[in-house]
Write a protein that binds this DNA or RNA. Structure first.
Lengths: 345, 345
DNA sequence: AATCTTAGTGCAAACGTTTGCAACATCGAT
DNA sequence: ATCGATGTTGCAAACGTTTGCACTAAGATT
């Protein structure tokens, strides 16, 4: 006995019928006698028959697999997105093949190539920080290949983007800080070439404007890496050198927020009394740090699930991608914790 | 023009040669004239030919894809393992298909089924907490199907296990606590059916023994869920009701450690002066909490990379699985931070 | 008795590749 | 001339399915 799985042919031979009959019997096609169906199914069960998805893919030119391209799995947000994708894909009978780019465009391109070789039915993409030219995507889109961009959206015409409402999340966060009486709010911004960073900065600016406050450009500081060390250094610097000391930080991400928190604490500032802090993404550790960190939570799971549902609808022609002209935005939620709550109501 | 990719047949037709010739030309088989090779390659380039991996899989009964089964992506440790897996698989020309069980055995079994349908070449498995019967694995192993168990190891004979040295990690952690002068060390243990939990507990016990300390069974408390809330509740309880109050906690995982930290802090204990805490896994947040959390770091990336290398070696027959009789253990590293360091040297 | 339905089944092609074998032409050596 | 060797190519089968079409045998209808 070799390792090989039982095939339709094996069943056919054993039962002295043709492969076609077996195939049809297994699928309950009309026009096969109940007797035959019974025998086929029994034997299939007995031989532990398992359809060969590869053969099926070849025949149907469909692989029932979607490709997911993300920067890094270790980012909490992306791992929640993956869960959402997985969940929906799985329940609708699709497989997920995964590739991380590690923020490298080379990896992005070659992953796309291998996935295409594998006759993937569609893509879910969050492109790398290095990606500035989108030809490798537009080529595919022009052929009508299903792609959905999530979190990091593009300006490609006809592309479907799904993202969280970064603008509103930032707007809410900063408004909250203002309402808590903070006056000199620094924005620890993200890499400028990502749309999400720009949107968050826009939310910051508009919130200030909305409250009639002046925007000071030196209060907007880019943290390209986004690590806590980087931010700790930057904020320490700000807190010791700026003539008008900031009294709050709105960070583009939670790591940066934690860095700011560490800096403020080690300089002897009280949080939230003297300095308020709000982060972005609501990583797990937000509730674990001391004081607990207020943050804007992004619905990663929902985003993954929603995007996958759309992608599969497009793949299965239940949805015409042309119909989707607006980017889809999901609501964020500001979670107020102790790092920014100095007015106890 | 339809969406379809160019195939070997297309090239063959255009050049008036046979598919065989094209196939061989593309692969630089000997016995094809340089002239033909040139023409074929040129046209392939021009048509943007991309081999159909599905057809190849069918032909070769090999999919160049490995299946990864893990409990949850959102666990930091697992996400680092995935990175390791991905890295190696990618560089050796394999795809990774991923499935999370969410700790459910049903999902585990059905994921395995679909992956097998997809003619996966091998499995990397970290089984679910619910898994107590391993028949669905032994069946495959008996057929000679390549499987490697990582992190959560099994007792299945002939199975290949790769894990971190949980015993030593725990031993080191507890020894460190003792050396710091802590006397009444509680172990917040993990689910009893996981070998990793047992090993960590064993390390705890042996460290105490090694220092001639008595083991008190009421100091070993199971935290089945492993969340910070659960542990906070449990430790609060311990700290308020036990006749002899514990002065240190060695937790089976970092979340539980953070829960203990929160409990101790809110009861007014000073860390590390009055209470010492050490966690396990070295999640990102360890350095971010206050005081920073000592923890045993597990080499997730290395584990993923190493395991994948072995799996692919087995798949490619470069390695005989029979030869591997001992489980492979990777060294852990105790990272001492402020939560357990009260003797400044 | 001749024709028409109908139920049940099988044939063969197709999906895109690879590969053992055979076929052919050309050329040099006998 | 004949034989072998050599270089180049094509044929056809195979991997496991699905599916349009054709076929058979039986029963129903005239």
């Amino acid at each position: 006995m070799k390792l090989g799985q039982a095939t339709i042919k094996d069943i056919a031979k054993e039962l002295n019928v043709s492969s076609s009959t077996v195939s049809r019997a297994l699928k309950d096609y009309p026009g096969i006698s109940d007797e035959t169906k019974r025998k086929v199914k029994e034997l299939a069960e007995k031989l532990n028959y398992r359809p060969n998805a590869i053969a099926l893919s070849l025949r149907k030119s469909r692989s029932y697999t979607i490709g997911v391209i993300i920067p890094e799995v270790v980012h909490f947000f992306f791992s929640t997105v993956i869960s959402g994708i997985e969940e929906v894909a799985y329940s609708r009978g699709y497989n997920v093949i995964l590739s991380q780019t590690n923020e490298k465009i080379g990896r992005e391109k070659s992953s796309i190539e291998t996935m295409l070789s594998n006759q993937i039915d569609g893509f879910m993409v969050s492109y790398s920080k290095e990606t500035e030219n989108f030809d490798h995507f537009t080529r595919l889109l022009d052929q009508g290949f299903p792609i959905i961009f999530f979190d990091r959206s593009t300006d490609i015409p006809n592309a479907i983007n799904i993202m969280v409402d970064d603008y509103k999340g930032a707007f809410d966060a900063v408004s909250h800080l203002i309402e808590q009486g903070y006056q000199k709010i620094v924005h620890l911004a993200g890499p400028k070439n990502l749309k999400i960073s720009k949107e968050r900065e826009r939310g910051y600016r508009d919130a200030l404007k909305n409250y009639g406050m002046e925007i000071q450009e030196e209060y907007i500081v880019e943290c390209p890496v986004g690590s806590d060390e980087e931010s700790k250094e930057i904020t320490t610097n700000l807190l010791t050198t700026l003539p008008e000391k900031p009294d709050a930080f709105f960070a583009n991400n939670d790591m940066a927020a934690v860095g700011a928190m560490a800096a403020a604490k080690s300089l002897g500032f009280k949080i939230p009394e003297q300095i308020g802090i709000v982060g972005f993404s609501n990583w797990q550790f937000c509730s674990m740090v001391d004081p607990s960190l207020s943050s804007v939570s992004q619905p990663g799971f929902r985003m993954g699930a929603r995007a996958t549902d759309m992608l599969l609808d497009i793949i299965e022609k239940k949805l015409d991608p042309q119909k989707i002209t607006e980017p889809i935005t999901l609501d964020t939620q500001l979670l107020i914790r102790n790092s920014s709550l100095r007015i106890k109501s």
